[in-house]
């Protein structure tokens, strides 16, 4: 028996909206500790990793570990039927479920929707993600980072990110010209302006903006984002989800020939 009830169902809707352009089908692994999901994009350039802790759910029960193979496109069709203020419950009684039940309830419990989504059997291609002690970590407004990526992608499809003790520089070079945006440490008490740099070792890495713009669809999940980098490592972009877990995106760098 597996049942997970999320008080703020809108969070689940936002998570699916954040990843639906990146991955087509995913395995959600349910265990006693919560839900986890890991999937690569079709080009195997990016990887998304979701972890939702059981104590972030209103109700959570998972008698034995199960894997739920979902089509993201079909899942988002079902979630379109959930209101932003609804609770969302996922449920199945079977051990090898062929479908997953969804219940959407409004606040007054005066409207209850029930859907059943057919499950897919997907080969689990899970990768080992080593715990990395990143040498450059940037915490900043997710809206601001999203804006920087959008603006720079009109000049080039590649961005170079260079960190130093007191600032991070996003540079682009394209046919029309070049540009850079330098953001300094800023302990402002305004969220949108605050920038926290923890630079043990400066890095200079290059990434495809197309992927960063897709990751930034997760801005509605958290007002801050963290960029985690080490030389010769994929960038890790993390959106923490209050009291529930985190949505992480990993992006392999572009190496100059």
């Amino acid at each position: 028996m597996f049942e997970a009830k999320l008080q703020q169902g809108v969070i689940f809707k936002k998570i699916v909206d954040a990843i639906k352009d990146l991955v087509k089908s995913v395995n959600i692994d349910a265990s006693t500790s919560g839900l986890s999901m890991q999937a690569m994009d079709s080009a195997h350039v990016a990887l998304v990793s979701l972890k939702l802790n059981e104590n972030g759910f209103k109700d959570y029960r998972c008698d034995r570990p199960i894997t739920l193979g979902l089509s993201i496109e079909n899942l988002s069709k079902i979630l379109k039927c959930a209101g932003n203020d609804d609770t969302i419950t996922l449920q199945t009684d079977e051990e090898e479920p062929s479908s997953l039940k969804f219940f959407f309830e409004n606040q007054q419990a005066s409207k209850i929707s029930e859907f059943s989504l057919n499950l897919m059997s997907l080969d689990s291609e899970s990768l080992g993600i080593p715990d990395t002690d990143y040498s450059s970590v940037i915490q900043m407004s997710s809206a601001e980072f999203s804006r920087i990526c959008k603006e720079l992608s009109s000049i080039s499809e590649t961005v170079e990110i260079e960190t130093s003790k007191e600032s991070v520089k996003f540079s682009v070079q394209g046919d029309i010209g070049a540009g850079s945006i330098t953001v300094k440490n800023n302990q402002s008490d305004k969220d949108v302006d605050r920038v926290d740099l923890q630079i043990d070792q400066p890095v200079k890495l290059t990434f495809a903006l197309r992927y960063l713009n897709m990751f930034n669809k997760a801005v509605s999940l958290s007002s801050t984002v963290s960029l985690n980098m080490s030389e010769e490592n994929p960038l890790m972009v993390e959106y923490k989800i209050d009291d529930l877990g985190s949505l992480r995106f990993y992006l392999a760098p572009k190496i100059s020939d």
Partner: peptide, 14 residues
């Protein structure tokens, strides 16, 4: 010019 690496260059299949 630069070459896009794959995520599987860095993370091993389990």
């Amino acid at each position: 010019k630069s070459t896009q690496k794959n995520i599987t260059n860095y993370f091993q299949k389990q």
